[in-house]
Design a protein around this nucleic acid. Structure first.
Lengths: 340, 340
DNA sequence: CTGAAAGCGCTAACAC
DNA sequence: GTGTTAGCGCTTTCAG
């Protein structure tokens, strides 16, 4: 049901022509004043400005863009607009400092929606796109990329096309989490995280396996990548905590998993050492407060805009993947000792 | 530093003309095909479509909009893009079902930024604006409103201009919270919330005072509206909990206050009955789990879009304020008994 | 320093 | 059914 707005009568907006007529000058002069061209006589400037405010004139950016050939806008296709989204916020800020507006659209974690959103951005001729990729194949963008559209992926790389990317140092993060737990005496450490079909799920699970291998700890039954649902996390956790030699510590691979794990553990949360990948607002008021590997979202967003502007300035530059360091924030849950 | 993108050479995009030439038809025919006008011969349709995909043509929406006179976009000016924003999400969804795109911009809780964002939306000739007002005066919009711009405020009303609004039932929510605590035996109930200069802060504090008055409870020293900072909430809480007859229960007026209160209480959180205004993602995994008055953000967003479309269809309709019911979600913290 | 004319990419009246 | 012609609101050569 596409019922574009505008059924009712809406007083016509004043156009530049109207202003010109009102001020008794040529169209071109109004344009100059609007764009603060210094080569206009002070006298005319004030007359035009008077006309502008008398008519409440505001230039139509679409027409400006059309004529100028640039939109002054970058698109941000993110997983959703509802959850905390520090990267989007950082992108927004960084863009503003470049004089660019941000057109944010959500992909709802859906491949088709992502494509739709991105295509709509292209239709609006955005000057660049920041994408948090969902789909595994992004070759629907290859034409745009070949045409020089600056595109940068955040959090995960795009699939099937060459594009700049800004990623967190997943391996280092898992390493920090593992080391923290080891240092506090844990030998039997488990991991529950995203499906390995997802880039970050794959990277983090692999890093975890590498840590276990390097430390000579037990691996069997300790790694549980998979879809993040309440029931899947619950059963993984149940399996990890049962048997003759249960895990004494857990690493969760993303916020959703962390939360599901906490939900499952309930009042027993204080009896299992826990380090979560990715920080979230209330992690510090949980009891025990949650130790996390925090991604530097602000830096990710800033870097994304840097890459975007760099590519816009030089479309031929080599494609680049930037890895942003993560940080361990010890708050208590990761420093719990193993039971004696 | 306004350095609009586009420094580098970017291959010119194909235009409708190019498609027409490629397909050997007139411009108008391509336009018809693009807009799926049924009056085009099947033969030509396929020829045009072949040309379109051969050239990777995508219509320029700005030009379409300019010509059509409508943008197919609504603006959403919200406090920020970082925090959870279910209203924005709902606006997004509801808009999509009307075939409208959403241009989301953050106001960063700043009056000047709000104005900037809204003006930029007007410059883009959005078909309507959903705003979470920050400033107290919105008469910079009066010209747009007079011109028929559909505008709807969410969460709080606009100041100084007549505009539709969608608000939560603050008074009822405070009433629910108060009643829940009363029912569980509390007589000395305190309130800490937003500054009364803020609309919701004012409404909720007033409702609280009315509840106390109606129930004949003690009022003096129990109401603490003010700016929500860590220190202000801490000192309010300290004052409320000290003295000969301290409060045994607390109502917090917004999420930020709730969280600061929990931070201050720390391990003692289980000893003070607490009901927070507004739900948040992790309220259920706290211990005790948090009893809240939940606003129906999804309904707020949907209603906002309904009002927007209604006004677009009939600019002369009377201005309307819709109040959305809230709901008490009992999770434990609000059902704690007073100490004996 | 200012103004007339062309045209950005597209759609909407009209002819054919 | 299809092509021609205007023009949306603006910027921008290029003359005055």
């Amino acid at each position: 049901m596409t019922d574009r707005l505008g059924g009712g009568v809406r007083r016509k907006r004043p156009t530049m022509r109207d202003v010109a007529r009102e001020a008794g000058v040529a169209l071109r002069t109004v344009s100059r004043v609007v764009n603060s061209d210094p080569t206009v006589g002070a006298h005319l400037v004030s007359r035009v400005q008077a006309a502008i405010s008398a008519l409440d004139y505001a230039p139509d950016e679409r027409a400006q863009q059309l004529r100028r050939g640039t939109s002054g806008t970058i698109g941000a296709a993110v997983r959703n607009l509802a959850d905390a989204h520090p990267v989007l916020s950082a992108v927004d800020m960084a863009s503003r400092s470049h004089g660019l507006a941000v057109l944010a659209m959500s992909t709802e974690d859906d491949e088709a929606r992502e494509r739709e959103a991105v295509m709509s951005m292209c239709g609006r001729r955005v000057d660049g796109i920041v994408i948090e990729p969902i789909g595994t194949s992004h070759d629907y963008l290859s034409a745009e990329l070949a045409g020089g559209l600056p595109l940068v992926a955040v959090d995960r790389p795009c699939g099937g096309v060459e594009a700049d990317a800004v990623l967190s140092d997943n391996a280092a993060g898992i390493g920090m989490a593992y080391r923290q737990l080891s240092v506090h005496g844990h030998r039997r450490i488990a991991y529950i995280g995203d499906d390995e079909r997802i880039f970050t799920g794959r990277e983090r699970a692999a890093a975890f396996r590498a840590c276990v291998a390097a430390s000579g700890g037990p691996l069997s039954g300790m790694v549980h990548p998979g879809v993040v649902t309440s029931s899947r996390v619950a059963s993984a956790l149940a399996s990890v905590l049962s048997g003759p030699s249960p895990a004494t510590a857990l690493i969760t691979g993303n916020v959703a998993t962390t939360i599901e794990a906490l939900r499952y553990l309930g009042a027993d949360a204080g009896r299992l050492a826990l380090v979560g990948f990715d920080d979230f607002t209330l992690a510090d008021i949980l009891r025990p407060a949650l130790t996390v590997v925090a991604q530097n979202s602000a830096e990710i967003g800033r870097t994304a805009i840097d890459l975007l502007t760099a590519r816009a300035a030089d479309p031929g530059r080599p494609v680049q993947t930037v890895t942003i360091p993560v940080e361990l924030i010890a708050r208590g849950s990761g420093e719990l000792p193993p039971p004696v």
